[in-house]
Structures are given as C-alpha cells and as structure tokens.
Amino acid sequence: MNRALIFIEQNNERLAPELLAVADQIHGPQPFETYAVVINGDVGSLVGQFDTVISVEDEALQAHDQMALADVVAGLHAEHQFDSIVVAATAAGKMLAPRVAMKINCGLVADVTEISRQNDKLRLVRPAYGGRMMAAIEMQGDGPVMLTVRPGVFRGPGEQHHKATQVIEPKGLRYRLGGIRQIKRESKQLSYDIREADVLVSGGGGVARGFELLEPLAKALGGKVAASRAIVDRGLISRSVQVGQSGKTVSPRLYLALGIHGAIQHVVALDEVEYIISVNTNPDAPICSLSDIVVEGDAVIFVEKLLEKIREEQINANN
C-alpha cells in the first residue's frame, strides 16, 4: 500500500488535518497509509488522525537545526520508503524540505496551492513569476512526491473517523548536528488573527494615504483590518495581518478590498470568501473580476463617505 509521510513541526501539530488533506488529494482514490513524524512534539494530539505516528524524543534535536532534522527524516524514508512527503511551508519547513529532497534525490515543489491530475499524472500547481502565473509541475524520477504547502491553503476534513494509531518510537537514529544555536526569541504580539475574522476590511497600495480610516470601518462592521503587502512593506501595519501567499490565507464571509490590485499572490489567499466588495480607481484591476460589487473610484473618499453614512444611521437609530 502507498505510504504518505507528513512532517509535523513541533508546536504546529494543529496543521495535521490540512496536511492530511493534501496527502488525500495526492493519493486520490488509492488506499494509502498515513504516517506522521514528530520530533519532540505533542504526540497525543496526533493519535487518532494517523495510521502511524513516528515519535522521536531526543533533546539534542533542536527544532531550528534543519541539518539534523533532515538526517532524521531521510533516515526514516530509507526505512519506510514513503510515496509522498508533505511538509508545511513554515519558515523552518522551507529550510528542512529542500535538504531532505537533496538527501533522498527527490524533486520538490514549493508552496503548492492546488493538486490535479492530467492523464493519470499528478500535477502540483503553484504560483510563479511573482504570482503573475500559475505553474503546473509534474515530477520526474522515481523519488516520492514531495511538496510544501503554506498553512491555511488546504482545508482539513470537517469530521474524520478516528484511526487506531500505532505510535513508534525509533531509537538510535543517526544525524549530524548543524552547528546552529538559538540564542534569543522574542515573539511578536499578535493582537488578533485575521484568519478568524468574519469580516475583513483590507487595504492596499491605493489607500496608503488614508489607511487609518480602515480601523473605524472595520469596527462598525464587526470585523478586522487586513492589508496587502504593499501596505505592510510601507510599514503601515504589522505583517501578521498580511493577506497573501507570503501572508495568511483567509476565509471571511465578507472581504472589502480597498485599493487592492488583486495580484495572484494576494488572491490565492482568499479561500472560500463569501462576498467580495472592491473599491478601485481602475475597474479592470483583477480583483474586480472576483468581486460581487465593484465600486469604481477613490477608496479613501468612499470609506469616508460610507463611515459618515453609517454614523448618521446609528445616530438616527439611537434617537
């Protein structure tokens, strides 16, 4: 039977369902066995989701030492001969997967957003050329199918039947240490998580001059402020609220795109958004073709007017 290996990063155990969904799409209707490998992580949360959990407990294996981790994963592959290997495209995962691929002579496809099949050949689709295009990639050679996917791009199944998980704890794994020490880590305060918002008021390059207006509008709509990279790069808001390929994937009910062009790297991260309203001076901006309502004109002026109207109505309602 085919075997899928999911690399579970320490402290990212919550990504297991969506990574399993990726394996599901790769193996399609063929029956396959699922393996998780977790290094000094929370095995308990994985039990029931996988057929086998390979739990490696070893204090010498640090989560930031990709050379050592790659040796461990490659060693497991040598033993189990996986048919697919899925790694989350987190900062660490993006350094780990290429090393493993090199060690086991396997092609690797980064940041896959879609999986399809053409004449029985698997196609892994990813944005390329700065998101101007999508590239459908096929694997050559006889290695496993190996890919990274950004968190939030694939959806885990809603409900899942509980599996009788076998936990194995391999001993005597061989690895080199990479000569990297983590000295300090200062986590950034995330005031809110845009992935959980029902309404996102999102600003782009077109509203840079009035970005602060988005906050009261988001408040009025019971939502949160998000942004494109054009705004984040200008330092107007924290990267933690960036929507897009190098930011977060979001699924609000309403996405208000103010002065956002709709570059592929931005829109790939709009997943199952129910309604999109865009305001743009250019009615042909790609975001407009995705929108339920397109407002052609200056987004800053529009937001001012809309806010004014909402306030007026609230005052009237209170009187």
Binding site: N105, C106, G107, L108, V109, Q118, K121, R123, A128, R132, M133, M134, A135, A136, I137, E138, M139, Q140, G141, G143, I264, V267, P286, S289, L290, S291
Partner: peptide, 15 residues
C-alpha cells in the same frame, strides 16, 4: 531535473 513545468498559465477567475 526532477520537476518539470508541464504548463504555465494565468489564472482566470469566474466573475
């Protein structure tokens, strides 16, 4: 190469 671009395209979204 172990990976090959089978097809490159711009994404069309349904409006």
């Amino acid at each position: 190469s172990l990976t090959k671009v089978a097809k490159a395209y711009t994404r069309k979204y349904e409006s």
